[in-house]
Simulated assay, not measured.
Amino acid sequence: MIKRAEQALIGRKTHALREFGLTVPQYAVLLLLASSDGMSAAQLARECMVTPQTMATVLANLERDRLIDRHPSALHQKVVVNVATAEGRAVVAKADEAALRVEGALSAAFTAEELRSFEGFLERAIVTLGELP
């Protein structure tokens, strides 16, 4: 049931983000970069829970569309830092409004008490699974 709910949420976000020319992974990356001074591909892959190969494709497409810039790290020669461009920040600000409307509609389907219970159940599931050997 959790997977089905996640797929339904991703499907609605995909539809909402299409207007901005973004996929859900591209949106997630831009959202992270818009609130940071830059991140490596490895950091972004971990945060977005995708493979490094998938992240490489996402970043290449964002760079092609001029939504991010990539430059060598001042700290490590072999690390490339990804930063959102002004255009990328503008696009993600609008796209975030659309994504938040989807999340808001989902939240509105539950009472405050139901949301607290639901979040508690999910947190318990996460903790339980994290404690398994």
Rank of each mutant, 00 (worst) to 15 (best):
R66A: 15
L106V: 15
A34D: 11
G21M: 00
E63T: 09
L33V: 06
H71P: 01
D37V: 02
V81Y: 05
S36H: 09
P25D: 02
L9F: 00
T23W: 05
G104M: 00
R4M: 09
T111S: 15
H76R: 14
A90N: 14
D69Y: 06
K3F: 07
A45L: 02
R12M: 03
A99S: 14
E131D: 12
L9Y: 01
A34G: 11
A125K: 04
V127G: 00
E87G: 09
E47Q: 13
R4Y: 05
H15C: 06
A60R: 13
V50H: 03
R4E: 13
A8F: 06
M49F: 11
L62D: 06
A109P: 03
A56N: 09
V24S: 02
A99K: 10
R18F: 07
A86D: 12
K94L: 15
T54E: 09
F121I: 13
L44I: 10
A95E: 01
F118H: 04
A45I: 06
L31K: 06
M39T: 03
G21E: 05
I10L: 12
L115R: 14
H15P: 04
L115E: 04
K78W: 13
A95W: 05
D96R: 14
E114Y: 02
R124A: 15
F20D: 04
V83C: 11
L31D: 00
F121W: 15
T111C: 02
Y27A: 06
A109Y: 01
T14R: 10
E6Y: 07
S73N: 09
A90C: 13
L17T: 00
I2D: 12
R70I: 13
I68N: 02
A108C: 03
E113A: 12
A93V: 08
A86L: 09
M55V: 08
A34T: 02
G130N: 10
A112Y: 08
L9C: 07
V83A: 09
R66D: 14
D65C: 03
G88A: 08
S73C: 10
E6G: 05
I2P: 05
V50L: 08
